[in-house]
Simulated scan of single mutants.
Amino acid sequence: MSSDVFEPLSGLEGVGSAARAARDAVDVLLRDRGLRRVSSDVTAEALLRGAHASAALAGSTATPDDVRRGAADGLASGAVRMTAELMTLAPQVDTAPVQVWTRLHQLAAADLGPAAELGHLRTAAEPIPDDIPGLPPAPAAAEMWERLSALAQNLTRPTKAPGLVVAAIVHAELAALRPFPTANGLVARAAERCLLVARGIDPVAVTVPEGGHYLLRASYATGLTDYTERGLTGVRDWLLRSCEVLTKGAELSPLVSPAGHADGALE
């Protein structure tokens, strides 16, 4: 039996062609602008836009200007903190995924709960979190630990699946499992972004996939619910949505809109 659990998912109806089209959108962006000419300022701006969009999805009311001035609320401040380490964490996500996820939570939740909860995977003695509105209840701690362990093990194995598919599945699993007491949505979206970097889809992090999720926010909770409850049909629909998200994320890149457009789309 194959240990590549991601490849069959990339073969679901329409997913392969949609993933190629989304990858092409990113490749065109990088090729047209010249990968070697992408500056650290462009990456920083794309990550900042992503942080603002992810925080807005989590309920933050901070504006892009608030984020830039360092005057944001706890959700947005946590999202920004993750961006500061994301490019350092990304290379580790294929070898030490749980450590990466717990570090992301430490950064995301620093203003959202007690210090003892930072980077802490929940146990059976603790309440089941409900911090992503519209989703079915998260599984009990025992099931969460089992699925999280399996997900981490599968990430360390070779796969023939496109990196976009792997990233989208990790996002959905972390959102469905909600392994942390708080900030699970922020962590899930940052984990997806780490994998898009690590798997070579967007190695210089100049797209804004979180912005794509925000623009498609009307289908975010329903997409994750379908992923959880509708078997392979729900998984396929989530993957197709994720391909659209990445295409929109390329359109929101600072390489396309140096100022104004992406922020305006999120206000």
Rank of each mutant, 00 (worst) to 15 (best):
S3Q: 08
F6K: 02
V15W: 08
R20A: 15
V28N: 10
L29P: 09
L29H: 13
L29C: 09
R33Y: 08
G34K: 05
S40P: 09
S40W: 07
E45L: 05
A55K: 02
A56S: 15
S60W: 02
T63I: 02
G74C: 04
M82L: 12
E85D: 07
L89Q: 11
Q92L: 14
A96S: 15
Q99G: 14
A109P: 04
P114L: 02
A116M: 03
A116Q: 11
A116V: 14
L118P: 09
L118W: 03
H120E: 09
L121K: 01
I128V: 15
D130L: 07
I132E: 10
A138H: 09
P139L: 10
E143A: 15
E146C: 05
L148T: 03
N154E: 15
N154H: 15
R157D: 01
L164K: 00
V165Y: 05
A172C: 12
L174H: 04
A176I: 00
P179F: 08
P179T: 13
A191Q: 04
L195Q: 04
D202L: 11
V206L: 08
G211Y: 03
L216V: 03
A218S: 15
S219A: 15
S219F: 13
A221R: 09
T233F: 00
T233C: 02
D237A: 14
W238D: 11
L239V: 11
S242V: 08
G249T: 14
E251N: 06
P254H: 01
P254T: 02
P258A: 03
A262I: 01
D263C: 00
G264C: 03
